[in-house]
Design a protein around this nucleic acid. Structure first.
Length: 525
RNA sequence: CGGGAUGUAGCUCAGCCUGGCUAGAGCACUAGUUUUGGGAACUAGGGGCCGGAGGUUCAAAUCCUCUCAUCCCGACCA
């Protein structure tokens, strides 16, 4: 809860406007260039997205943050259904024995499992103690391959039952050592797709297809450009044959694994007994896949689009896309100003952003205008509209966009407002993507060819207080797992083997041996 | 699980070293007044088992012992 160490830093670095009322030049203190990690925490706080729970490692997602997640869910769920999948729900608890079925899966998740061993509490010496020990403990799902596999094994009898295309929206628990709001919490919300197919070819097509669904979703809805590629062997999901991913570059140039899609071969089918009778009457194991994205994406959006004044939301993610701020200089003006605000909101709601009506909120709270304005800047609402008596006289409003400086204002005639708002929302969406893409392009480096240069590139000039540095290095690699210890030393990792290989041969950046592939190397979250 | 630190108001902290007044400040909150077209000012007010237990003492937020919790740095990760 109290993060004394980090907040002290904030105060040292300048103003320390931790809870509103600040008078700094920027909405958020510290600014990104001073302390990026602390900036991230302060944005979450100022935008009222989430907070640490009293439960270790878990977060409380506040309405504005949850609204963003709901927008993501809506958009992604449509896409998952459009590709033929159906939603279902499987239990939170998984019998301990299930986890043991797939050998790699065990070693991958055993260390971070929450285990339920009792089913009752008894009062003993004034204290509640666990009682009623379970014969077989259950674990809280860290992921659901095994429990869904059990259902699949009963649902699938014939090749005619395939493909089985299932998705579930759920919470999962991984007992993490070190947590950060949205990026890594012990409990998180996600979607996990689980599919079974008659052939390797079909299953691989599914794996690629869902990765592409993620990429399209991240780039068009989150306005977050990503690299797509395959994880090297040592970074695979426990039990997977191949793992593919979307990797995004945050503004501190570190990589965020934003989504993964796994081809599981017959590993889980064999473990769970997912077998079917094929056309030739032979009994075969199914080929399965799984794929997921989580509330981590909210963290990704913050670190992709946020600026020194707080969050900036792509319109497609904003729970409210337009906030109207009534300006009421004296009590007499109140009635007429609010009436005009209602009327304008009504008109704007008739316009659309994409398929949906534009979401408008009138902030009628009895607070000072400047204060409310700053609150919405920090929360990242795409468009703010001020309406006061002087505007009413001129039949216009004063509009500010979150993708421009907060002092920049546009005056727009009431009659044109709905059309203009719709246009501007589209512009903001594409501007945010363009800015993120430009940042990404600028910090992908291809000219580094040996370890010394790599080390130099990822070493900050100021060791005491590292400035934002580094980026993604696109380099040749020989594929030798032994060579990775060199990356460990620099706290780097191979983020992925991107799909768009240029195919040119060359020497491995780590060993100098002849390279077999191009990889993206970066520091990661 | 190793190394380091911290627990005092809703939040951020001062006070502890050198024990003693009614335990403080800023922010937040409530009320009033003046303000109001870009983060208001003033006045008043509410709010504390000083993490918990034990000890030393005439007297403990302060000293001692134990304990619990949290945070930071490492190993794990969507």
């Amino acid at each position: 809860m109290s993060q004394k160490g980090t907040n002290q830093k904030a105060v040292e670095s300048g103003k320390g406007n931790t809870s509103g009322g600040g008078t700094g030049a920027t909405g958020i203190t510290p600014i990104r260039s001073v302390d990026y990690a602390e900036w991230y925490q302060q944005v979450i706080k100022a935008a009222e997205l989430a907070e640490n729970s009293v439960v270790r490692g878990c977060m409380v997602v506040r309405p504005w943050g949850y609204g963003i997640w709901e927008r993501m869910q809506r958009e992604l769920d449509d896409r998952i259904k459009a590709t033929g999948h159906e939603n279902a729900y499987f239990p939170l608890f998984i019998p301990l024995s299930f986890l043991q079925k797939e050998a790699e899966h065990v070693t991958g998740f055993a260390k971070e499992c929450a285990v339920v061993t009792h089913h009752r509490l008894e009062l003993k010496d004034g204290k509640l103690v666990p009682a009623g020990e379970l014969e077989e403990p259950v674990i809280v799902r860290p992921t659901s391959e095994t429990i869904i596999g059990e259902s699949f094994s009963r649902w699938i009898k014939s090749y005619r039952d395939l493909p089985m295309l299932i998705n579930q929206w759920a919470n999962v628990v991984r007992w993490e050592m070190r947590t950060r709001l949205f990026l890594r919490t012990s409990e998180f919300l996600w979607q996990e797709g689980h599919t079974a197919h008659a052939s390797e070819k079909e299953a691989m097509e599914e794996t690629y297809k869902m990765l592409e669904v993620y990429r399209e979703f991240m780039e068009t809805v989150l306005a977050m450009p990503v690299f797509v590629g395959e994880k090297p062997a040592h970074e695979r999901f426990p039990g997977a044959v191949r793992t593919f991913c979307c990797e995004a570059m945050m503004q501190d140039r570190k990589a965020l694994q934003a989504g993964t899609s796994h081809y599981l071969g017959t590993n889980f089918a064999k473990a769970s007994g997912i077998e079917f009778v094929a056309e030739d009457s032979s009994i075969q194991s199914a080929f399965t896949t799984s794929w997921g994205v989580s509330t981590r994406l909210v963290g990704g959006v913050i670190m992709t689009h946020g600026d020194d004044d707080g969050l900036r939301l792509p319109p497609s993610l904003a729970p409210k896309q337009v906030v109207i701020l009534p300006v009421i200089p004296n009590p007499d003006a109140q009635e007429s100003v609010l009436r005009v605000c209602e009327e304008l909101a009504h008109q704007i709601r008739k316009a659309k952003f994409g398929e949906n009506a534009i979401q408008v909120h009138i902030d009628k709270r009895d607070k000072r205008g400047g204060e409310k304005n700053w609150e919405w800047i920090k929360r990242g609402v795409p468009i703010r509209i001020e309406v006061g008596p002087r505007d009413i006289d001129k039949q216009q409003v004063c509009l500010s966009r979150r993708d421009k400086g907060h002092k920049e204002k546009l005056f727009i005639a009431n009659s044109e407002l709905p059309t203009k708002v719709a246009e501007i929302l589209v512009e903001i969406q594409s501007n945010l993507f363009a800015q993120a893409k430009a940042h990404q392009d600028q910090h992908v480096i291809e000219s580094i060819s040996n370890y010394e240069e790599l080390k130099k590139f990822f070493t900050p000039k100021n060791a005491e207080k590292p400035e934002i540095h580094g980026g993604f290095v696109r380099a040749k690699w020989c594929g030798d797992p032994q060579s990775l210890s060199l990356l460990d030393e620099l706290k780097l990792s191979v983020r992925c083997i991107p799909f768009d290989q240029t195919g040119t041969v060359g020497k491995c950046i780590l060993t100098g041996k002849s390279a077999t592939q191009e990889v993206l190397i970066a520091k990661s979250y």
